[in-house]
């Protein structure tokens, strides 16, 4: 390839890739940078003032309630992400391996519940799991005790979040498996590897990047969940996200809300970074880097 051709290729690449990248830069990264700035400001009667101070962070880090909310949201999100991982893997594997020509339909059927809004679906979950809900009504007509743990508790919030974000996990793993060469498993079998060992040594590491994306796709929204805990979490269910949302609704304390947003962003980014460290691009078949 000559130098001239290469230059042309580079220009073409930039011409095609830059518009979208600029769009994301302007409408995602600049807004995030701006709330970092605003988090050092002050709000008064729904107006932001450039009065630089660290007060918002001082309150956030010293008032134990906020740290308790943060910790609660964090642990819930970790448990939800791992639950989705455990159930999502075999499901995605089944679709990719045995779905045949209906694979796309099977995946779209996982996304279709999103056509119904989150509020309606979560309140329907409440209708099913709540004290007068369908589930406990059935138990009681058979003379059994209602299951109390699934009404207005952190477990209920967790079930709600698994319900909402499981499709993300399955889709991420499925997209990874789509580019996985299942014949590698045949080779392993011929060479005498047991199925379990072939999974540990071939399938899992080669699809770890897709799995890691799935973990992050579930963790990030679960950590920031604001609506689900309000509906399902009961009186002690308030989450960091729901308190954060309040700063932009009822109270209008935008600077403080920005500081909460920055902390949420920082914690999520740290988790993403830790997960990313475990990804070995050379060993994942996902990026198409062999090209």
């Amino acid at each position: 390839m000559t130098g001239k051709r290469r230059l042309k290729e580079h220009t073409r690449f930039l011409l095609m890739a830059l518009p979208g990248a600029l769009f994301i830069f302007v409408f995602l990264l600049l807004p995030i940078l701006s709330i970092i700035v605003f988090s050092f400001w002050r709000t008064e009667v729904y107006e932001l003032y450039a009065d630089w101070n660290l007060d918002n962070y001082r309150v956030l880090l010293t008032e134990p309630t906020y740290m308790i909310f943060l910790w609660r949201s964090f642990t819930t999100a970790v448990v939800v992400a791992f639950t989705c991982l455990v159930f999502g893997w075999p499901i995605a594997y089944f679709i990719a391996r045995y779905g045949g020509r209906y694979r796309l339909l099977m995946i779209l059927a996982l996304a279709a519940p999103f056509f119904t809004g989150i509020i309606l679906r979560v309140s329907a979950l409440q209708g099913i799991m709540g004290p007068v809900g369908a589930f406990n009504m059935v138990l009681m007509t058979f003379g059994m005790q209602p299951i109390e743990i699934i009404m207005f508790s952190r477990v209920a919030t967790g079930i709600g979040l698994v319900y909402l974000y499981m499709p993300f996990m399955v889709t991420a793993i499925y997209l990874s498996l789509l580019n996985f060469d299942f014949e590698l498993l045949e080779v392993a079998k011929i060479n005498g590897a047991r199925p379990w060992r072939a999974f540990i040594e071939i399938t899992w590491p080669l699809n770890w990047m897709g799995t890691a994306i799935g973990l992050i796709l579930v963790f990030v929204p679960s950590m920031a969940a604001s609506v689900t805990p309000i509906f399902l979490g009961g009186p002690n269910g308030a989450s960091f996200g729901s308190v954060l949302g309040k700063q932009f609704g009822e109270t209008g304390t935008w600077a403080f809300g920005s500081a909460m947003g920055v902390i949420l962003f920082a914690v999520s980014s740290l988790v993403i970074y830790l997960v990313w460290l475990s990804v070995d691009l050379q060993r994942s078949g996902f990026t198409g880097k062999e090209a």
Binding site: L28, P31, I32, S34, I35, I213, I216, L217, V220, P221, M223, A224, S226, G241, L244, G245, F248, G257, S258, G261, L264, F265, S268, S269, I272
Partner: peptide, 11 residues
């Protein structure tokens, strides 16, 4: 993908 909806919304 790695920024929560809530954060995109408020920012």
């Amino acid at each position: 993908l790695f920024v929560a909806n809530l954060l995109i919304g408020i920012s």
